[in-house]
Design a protein around this nucleic acid. Structure first.
Lengths: 226, 226
DNA sequence: CCTTTCCTGTGATGGTCGTCACCCCACGCC
DNA sequence: GGCGTGGGGTGACGACCATCACAGGAAAGG
């Protein structure tokens, strides 16, 4: 459990395309660390010197306002990684990362990371792909925040999540509170909007599993103003 | 004017750190193209096969909703570049780009771009730095949209712009309309907020030059809730 | 120079959504 | 089994801000 198998590493998008021998080398540079649910993995404004890969569990990337309100920039699951920005540009952490469940993370130190990136065009290119993907998502999110009302943003989020899961049913536990923080809304408003979606038979909900029943209607709603 | 001087290329962040000879090679791969004010340089959802560098003028990156409302994701000036996302991940353009002024752009084709990135770790690293910077900005913007009210978002924008210009005075023409689209607000609300800022002597405005008179107060305002 | 377009200022009005204040329910834990 | 905590549902109220409707003034272009 302390040395990640090459099998796991091969599933990490960042490392896809690497030879098995390279994956093993990678594994050796890595430490595994456990974070219990709720613990803070890294703080905004910390100097950052590590890259993290989620081996088990789920973590959230959040901004926290002075008044304590949280904005969730992203939820990362097994195979996702975070913390590379600070390693690339040597600037402080741009957000907090908090474990949503008990999680095991692989930790890679700055120097090892940089050496890997500089010596392997494949890794560098994967990184560029990943950052591009995130940038597109971020811009999308900005568009959604400006152009859509709360129900529209929820519809979008649901469509995104189900697409990500390649499945019309979203299994993972997402509380209204969490959804609210992901789309910039209040818990109550999310509650009301979800109720409307159910009444309209666009989605069905059973003990925290959300199934999209009428994808077309949701898509409509997610673009009503976009 | 058709072959960019190495002097200009040296000022482009993407290419900083390259040898003069490399810059010249780069210049040869490049075509220059003129876009009059208001013309659309590229459309969302187009397949993209070029990278653009702003040689002269200014362009805006925008999302356009079905109802025609515009969200400005960014304003790019001399030395900035755009269009690399589609070249990296082979996905369609994520936004429109429109010339705000008569502009001259350097155009670099996909294959030449890729070859440069793959053969030069320096360029690859610069690209990573640039994407990191944008990602931080995007996340910041998301935080601002969720956590700040309109005056707060304006205060932030003004601080950002003056920092970018390394100058308490923002010279470039920004209409209220443009500001509104950058922060996700209406033109009227921006108008009223700017008036308040002037009445409070936080900024002074003279024929489209905005000077920050009380930076501390603005910073306060930009974090009141963040 | 004059006309047309673009930019700004300001009032009135209403909708969306955040906030507050409760409620109940499910579940895990002692 | 009680009990506490976290999640969900709902009503009332008000704030913020988009929208509509003008009006005046600068600027751009013939």
């Amino acid at each position: 459990m302390t040395t990640p198998t090459a099998d796991f590493l091969a599933t990490v998008p960042l490392l896809s395309g690497l030879e098995r021998s390279e994956l093993l080398r990678f594994g050796e540079l890595t430490r595994e660390k456990f974070y219990p649910r709720g613990s803070v993995i890294l703080f905004e404004n910390d100097p950052g010197d590590s890259l993290f890969v989620v081996r088990e569990g789920r973590v959230k990337v959040v901004l926290i306002g002075e008044d304590g309100r949280e904005v969730i920039l992203g939820v990362l699951s097994v195979g996702d990684h975070f913390g590379e920005l600070a390693l690339i540009d040597d600037r402080p952490r741009s957000a907090h990362v908090i474990a949503m469940e008990d999680s095991n993370l692989l930790v890679l130190r700055r120097d090892d990371f940089r050496r890997r990136v500089e010596s392997s065009p494949t890794v560098a290119w994967s990184l560029l792909m990943e950052l591009s993907r995130r940038l597109r998502r971020a811009d999308d999110k900005i568009g959604g925040l400006v152009l859509l009302d709360v129900p529209g943003r929820i519809a979008r989020l649901l469509l995104d999540l189900s697409e990500e899961a390649r499945n019309p049913t979203i299994e993972k536990a997402l509380t209204h509170q969490t959804i609210a923080q992901m789309i910039g809304a209040s818990r109550e408003t999310v509650s009301r909007a979800m109720k409307e979606f159910q009444d309209a038979h666009w989605v069905t909900v059973e003990r925290r599993r959300i199934t999209l029943a009428d994808r077309a209607a949701l898509e409509q709603r997610a673009q009503a103003r976009l």
